[in-house]
Computed example of a mutant assay.
Amino acid sequence: MQSRFRSRSTWLATVCALVVVLATPVVVATASTSASAATTLTVAQALGAQDGRSATVTGYVIGQPTASNTVIRSGFTADTAVAIADTSAETSTSRMLYVQVTTAYRSAFGLLSNPGLRGQRITATGTLTAYFAHGGLKNPTAMSLGGTTPTSSPTPTPSPTVPGGGYDSTYYAAAIGKTGTALRSSLHSIIRSHTRLSYDRVWEALKDTDQDPANPNNVILLYTGRSQSKSSNGGDPNDWNREHVWAKSHGDFGTATGPGTDVHHLRPTDVSVNASRGNKDFDLGGSTVAEAPGCYTDADSWEPRDAVKGDVARMIMYMAIRYEGTDGWPDLELNQSVGNGSAPYHGKLSVLLQWNQADPPDAFEKRRNQVIHERWQGNRNPFIDHPEWATSIWG
């Protein structure tokens, strides 16, 4: 009898242990548990990886997003979304990630129910994709209070000696090894999701992206190369204004949020020089532009100075890949023509390919790409990181 009793006790202990093991995951898989132990991204990194991947992001709660460029910091109206940033004092929505708060997490992370959450650090795991037409994280699978600063820098600086600026294994991972139409499709998917600025915000962005490295109070004007006070923007003849390098009439998109406000192709230019360029396509030759030494123009084309020929080419190429007829915008394409008028085309392709090779990206252009990625739109111009991709796509 004694041996049978011991056997039964052993059996009961085994069953109890099995029940505990099976029950444990149910206990921890709740809305308040810690987010994934996978590598945690900063908000800046998450804004630069809006490609549908699953990721864990940590940041400080700034407020409740209500529109693409609006985050309220008090008087919260719903529990459905929070905006987070890498610093608790952040004021620019371009450096905030909009996090969707689904039903399972609203009681703990909705700002209407928890206004004291503002200023606290949270960690969330979900899908990196646009939300409120802004860089976002949707469909969270985990959210938790707290978190630690990621080991990688929130503002990584790409090395000019590394192809892709060091982003090949992350941002460009889906494009590496592809060519032709497959490469084009991959790049479009990678750069498509980004923060869209208002036309008024473009003024602020250009003062940052085109800052004179030798004088932080000035910007460098694209066609003249002149260093000019940031505060001298406006409409008078010697002011600087916002030049659409891809002429906004080519596709008739104007200055509405989208291609009309994409700072990857908007640059500070002298008002008079901007008027001389107008909506002309790019080609070689013509008469000297008096206020812009090194630039030439005729009835239907514009040739920029040598120092920015490659910059112009890569901006035009970016637009052709970013805007492929999705999101309600025209399908922008390069062609061999000049005088494209209101058609969604820009030329001259063969000349732009030559300029891309003759004038490779310099430090100013690389910094500009990085600033747009980190502080304004969250996406990159792939032809600055990989100029050789232009030939792979267009031949």
Rank of each mutant, 00 (worst) to 15 (best):
Val245His: 01
Asp362Glu: 10
Val43Ala: 03
Pro268Trp: 06
Lys280Phe: 12
Ala343Phe: 11
Asn139Pro: 04
Glu204Trp: 13
His244Lys: 11
Arg314Lys: 01
Leu352Asp: 13
Arg192Thr: 14
Phe364Arg: 15
Val219Pro: 00
Ser198Arg: 05
Gly285Cys: 02
Thr261His: 04
Val19Glu: 02
Thr288Arg: 06
Ser227Phe: 00
Thr30Leu: 14
His188Cys: 10
Gly310Ser: 13
Lys309Leu: 00
Thr181Gln: 07
Glu374His: 15
Arg118Cys: 01
Thr123Ser: 01
Ala175Thr: 12
Asp281His: 02
Trp394Arg: 05
Thr195Leu: 08
Trp240Gln: 02
Tyr296Glu: 10
Glu333Asp: 11
Asn279Ala: 11
Gln377Trp: 07
Pro268His: 04
Ala390Leu: 04
Arg368Val: 05
Val219Met: 01
Thr33Leu: 05
Pro259Ser: 08
Asp283Glu: 12
Arg242Asp: 11
Leu97Arg: 07
Val289Pro: 03
Gly48Cys: 11
Arg267Pro: 06
His250Leu: 05
Arg95Trp: 00
Val19Cys: 07
Thr56Leu: 08
Arg118Thr: 13
Arg368Leu: 12
Thr42Lys: 09
Asp359Val: 02
Gly147Ile: 06
Gln354Pro: 07
Pro163Thr: 05
Ser392Thr: 11
Val82Met: 02
Gly294Trp: 10
Ala343Leu: 02
Ala46Leu: 01
Met1Phe: 11
